[in-house]
């Protein structure tokens, strides 16, 4: 039971998950060469931020709903961003015949 009490969800547990997600997101962004993969990394960081907001709202600042609202907007914005990003990826794919972002190196200098 004591071991379980250690896992009684509190602020630090949730923020810990968030930090792990952040690290994963950064790693995904930096390792993936597929543009969609990079987008997934971004989603991970956004989710990490969402967890933070909700956790802080729930465990620390629970006299208002600011954090939850912010998370709501993050979700909306993530969808919007994904839509435009994917349209651009598609366009890129049509022009370059690949989704590998490393092929996009004509502009440089």
């Amino acid at each position: 039971m004591t071991t379980l009490a250690l896992f009684e969800p509190g602020l630090y547990h949730l923020v810990g998950v968030s930090i792990a997600l952040l690290a994963a997101g950064v790693a995904v962004i930096l390792t993936k060469r597929n543009a969609v993969g990079i987008l997934m990394g971004v989603e991970l960081i956004l989710n990490a931020a969402g967890i933070n907001f909700v956790a802080f709202n729930n465990y620390v600042w629970d006299n208002a709903m600011d954090g939850q609202m912010f998370t709501l907007f993050i979700i909306v914005l993530a969808a919007a961003e994904a839509a435009v990003a994917l349209a651009i990826f598609l366009n890129f794919y049509n022009n370059f015949d690949t989704i590998n972002v490393d092929q996009a190196d004509e502009l440089q200098g």
């Binding site: 969609v36 909700v54 939850q68 709501l72 993530a78 969808a79 994904a82 794919y93």
Partner: peptide, 24 residues
């Protein structure tokens, strides 16, 4: 929020991403 996360994120955005994967 959890419901929204499931509906919009997992249900919408992710499907979008999968579409993106398929199309590209």
């Amino acid at each position: 929020l959890a419901a929204i996360q499931l509906i919009v994120y997992a249900g919408g955005t992710l499907i979008l991403i999968v579409f993106g994967v398929m199309l590209t």
